[in-house]
Design a binder for these strands. Structure first.
Lengths: 144, 144
DNA sequence: ATAATAGAGGATAAAAAACTCTTTTATTAT
DNA sequence: ATAATAAAAGAGTTTTTTATCCTCTATTAT
C-alpha cells in the first residue's frame, strides 16, 4: 500500500507526536528504538520531513525532533503525500498514465471510490488524536 | 497500490480475456502492444500466471495465451494475490508485523475497513464482465 | 520428417528502493 | 572559547524490482 519508507515515516511522526508534550524532544536513537526501524534510515526520512516542514528539529545537546502545536495538526495524508507522493490518491489502479472519466480503465470508478475513502480517512486523522490511545497503550507502534 | 508487475498482470489478463472469444489465442507481442508493456517482461509475468493456472497457453504456430470458460471467471483478486500476495488485503497499514485486534496499530480499524472494501471489489470483479465495455471501447487498457 | 512458430526457463543487466557510514554544521553547557 | 552533543548533508552499499536476452522445448503446417 505505502512504501516501507512511508510506513516508517508515519510511525515516526506518531511516535514523536506522542513524545512532544511539554516541549520535549526526542533523539533519533530513541525514535528508531521506539518504532523498531533502522536508525540511520529513519534519520534520513526525518531529514526529508524536516525539510518539508512537517517536523521540527534542533541540533545540539538536549536537541532532537519534536512537533509544536501546529505540527500536531499534521494529517496522515500530509505525511503520505510528502513521502510517497499523490500517486496512491490519484493514480490509476492499473497503472495507466492516462486514465480519466473520459478514458477510464476498466476499474476506474471502483478505484476512485476506494482511493477517495483512503484519502478522506488519512486526511481526517491528525497526529493529535492518536496521543491518548498510544499513552493508554491501546494502540502500538511496534511489536511487543 | 499494486506493484508494476501486478498492474501489467491485470491489464494483460483483461486483454487476453477480451481476445479469447471463440477459442482464439493471443501472442506475447500482441499482448505487449495491446497493453503498452515491455514485451519480455509481460512474457515472464504470464509464465508465472500460467504456472499458477490463471491463464492457459499453447506453444507453436497459432499458439498463444487464452482463457477458457473457467479462466474467464478468474477474479481480479485472484490475480493480485498471485502476483503481489495477500499483504495488501491483510497487512498492517503502518507495516507492523504484529498488528491485530488485540495489539492494533493506531489506524488498524480504519485500514481494515478500506482493505476489506478493496478486497470485496476485486473479488467481485471477474474477467467476464469487462469484455463488453472493452469491446464497445468504453474502457481502455492503454493510453490512446 | 522438417521447418517455422511461439511459449518456457535460466541468466543477466539496469533502475529503484532500502539501508549504512562518514563528515559537517548547529547548539548547548562548561 | 571549548568540548560535547545531536541533527544535516553527502556519499556510499545492498537488496529488490523491473526489464532484457538467449537457448530450449512443444506444437503445427507442409
Amino acid at each position: 500500500m505505502f512504501s516501507k519508507t512511508c510506513e516508517y515515516a508515519l510511525r515516526a511522526m506518531l511516535f514523536v507526536g506522542q513524545k512532544s508534550k511539554g516541549g520535549k524532544r526526542t533523539g533519533i536513537r530513541e525514535i528508531a528504538e521506539g518504532i523498531d526501524s533502522p536508525e540511520y534510515f529513519i534519520a534520513k526520512i526525518l531529514q526529508e520531513l524536516s525539510r518539508k516542514n512537517l517536523i521540527q528539529s534542533l541540533k545540539g545537546p538536549a536537541g532532537g525532533f519534536y512537533l509544536d502545536k501546529k505540527g500536531m495538526e499534521c494529517t496522515l495524508a500530509d505525511i503520505v503525500s510528502a513521502i510517497d507522493g499523490d500517486k496512491i490518491f490519484s493514480g490509476c489502479g492499473l497503472g495507466l498514465k492516462e486514465c480519466s472519466e473520459k478514458k477510464p480503465c476498466p476499474i476506474h470508478s471502483e478505484f476512485k471510490k476506494i482511493r477517495k475513502e483512503m484519502h478522506d480517512m488519512l486526511q481526517a486523522s491528525t497526529l493529535n488524536e492518536f496521543d491518548e490511545k498510544l499513552e493508554r497503550k491501546l494502540t502500538f507502534l511496534k511489536r511487543v
